[in-house]
Simulated assay, not measured.
Amino acid sequence: MTRAHEEEVLARIAKGLVYTESEAAFQAPRRRTEQIFEYNHTPPSETEKRRSLLVAIFGSVGERTVLLPPFHAAFGSNVHIGDDFFGNVNLTFVDDVDIRIGDGVMIAPSVTLTTTGHPVHPSRRADFGRFSEPIVIEDKVWIGSNAVVLPGVRIGYGSVIGAGSVVSRSIPPMTVAFGTPCRVVRPITDEDLATRTAGHEAVPFGSSGGPEEEAGEPGGSVRIGRSVVRECR
C-alpha cells in the first residue's frame, strides 16, 4: 500500500466511513498486544513495572493511575487517560480510533468502550468492514459495571452511568443516566452532597468497586420519589 493510499484510508476512518481489515492492516505496528499481555501477568507487587508498561501501552497516561488486570485493548496506543483514574477488572478498549478519558474518572468491572461498529447489511461487512468514531469521557465521570459505551459518544463532566447501560448517545454533564438505551434520569444537584453520609437518609448510589467503597443499601441503588431503582452495581 502506498503512502497516498494509507492517507486516504486514514481520512476515511476520520470521517466515520466504512473501511476494511485489509485496508487498515498498515496500522498493525501500533497495536500493543505483547505489552498488554505482559501487564496482565505482572505481579501486583511490581508497581514500577506496571507503571512503565502503562506508559508504553497508552497514547498518554496521567499520574496516580490504577488499572486492575486483566484489561484488553485493540491497540492501546489510541487510549489517552488523565490523572487519578481508577479502572476495575475486565475493562475493554476497542480503540481503533481515540478514546480520551479525563481526570478523576472511575470505571467499574467489565465495562466496554468501543469506538467501532459494523454496517447492518452483510455485504458491507466483507473483510470485517467497519466504521469508527472517537469516545470522550470527561472529568469526574463514574461508569457502573457491565456498561457499554458505543462509537461517537461523549459523557459529560461528573455524570454517572448506571450498571448494564448501553450508551448509544452522548450524555450531558452532571446527570445520572442508565438503561438500554441509556437515558438521563435526573440531574446531579447539591442535594447529592448529603448522600451516603452517616446520619442522612438520602439518595444512595452504587459502588464503582473502587478502593473506598462505602456502606449503604445492598447492591447500590438510586431513590427517585418513593421508588428505588437499581443503579451502579
Rank of each mutant, 00 (worst) to 15 (best):
S221N: 12
I36A: 05
P172Y: 02
T47M: 12
L193S: 07
V149G: 05
A4R: 11
V89Q: 07
S45K: 09
T92S: 08
A163T: 04
S145E: 01
I101Q: 00
E6G: 03
E23Y: 09
V185E: 08
H118W: 07
T180I: 14
T2L: 08
A4F: 03
P134C: 01
P211S: 12
A56Y: 02
H200G: 03
D95G: 06
G16F: 01
L17M: 12
S145V: 00
V166C: 09
E7M: 15
R64Y: 12
T197S: 08
E38G: 04
G76T: 02
K49F: 06
T197M: 10
L54V: 06
T92C: 04
R183D: 11
T175K: 04
V66M: 08
I188V: 15
I137C: 08
L193E: 12
H72Q: 13
V66I: 14
K15S: 11
G102T: 06
G129L: 09
S145I: 00
I161S: 02
V222G: 03
V94C: 01
F85D: 03
E48Y: 06
A177K: 02
I224W: 10
I135G: 09
F71A: 08
A198V: 10
F75Q: 00
Y157R: 15
R230S: 15
A56M: 05
P119S: 13
I143L: 07
V61F: 05
G220Y: 11
V105Q: 01
P181S: 13
